[in-house]
Amino acid sequence: MRDSTYKVAAGPEGYLPPAAAVMGVELPDPGQAIMEGECVDQDTAMKAIASKLVSAENPVFFPGPLILWDWKPGVAEKAAALKDLAEAVGAKMIPMPDYRPKYPMINPAIEVNPNHPNLTIVHNKIDVCLFIGVHCHYANIALKIIRGGTDCYTIAVCAEAGHEEAMISLRDAGICELQRLRELVIELKGGMSR
């Protein structure tokens, strides 16, 4: 309905960039994904994610509470798939164990916080990050803050409706998508696994 020319690209975009949805960017329908503000098919997005991860200097995964804690059936398996993917990429994992503003301060070397993700990104010189297992509301806030203040490239692997605040976002993503990403990464790296 709304024509959007808004590009969800790596920042730093400025003091307080607008929310992408307000600029007309719409979330993808099932089976689709979103890339820099545009809907693409899921496979294209997955390939782009794999290539971003492989070419990154310091890719880091930010697993959130929904995957860090083994709280319901299926989480452990998904966590294992995530770990495999991280190993294939050679990415570090920095956890987001909860969403509180931590007093007096987080240790940006070992954790990330949705209220000020940039402390972790700048501290660790992260050029590509991947969000997974974070409740959508907190993920969107963090993704937008990152876009505003850093040049980090953001990827969101979402089990729900996806994130237009991320540069690439999958929706309805589960174990299969993580495994597929791992295959793509290994392929790009020349077939070397583990």
């Binding site: 929904l66 509180r100 503003p101």
Partner: peptide
């Protein structure tokens, strides 16, 4: 999860970071 979750948690800091997190929350 997470175990430690509070509604409205942005209060106890007063600085650019907490204001911009608050602003980003409203944008969301």
């Amino acid at each position: 999860p997470p175990m430690r979750i509070t509604r409205d948690p942005l209060l106890n800091k007063s600085n650019f970071i907490s204001s911009s997190a608050n602003a980003s929350w409203h944008q969301e």
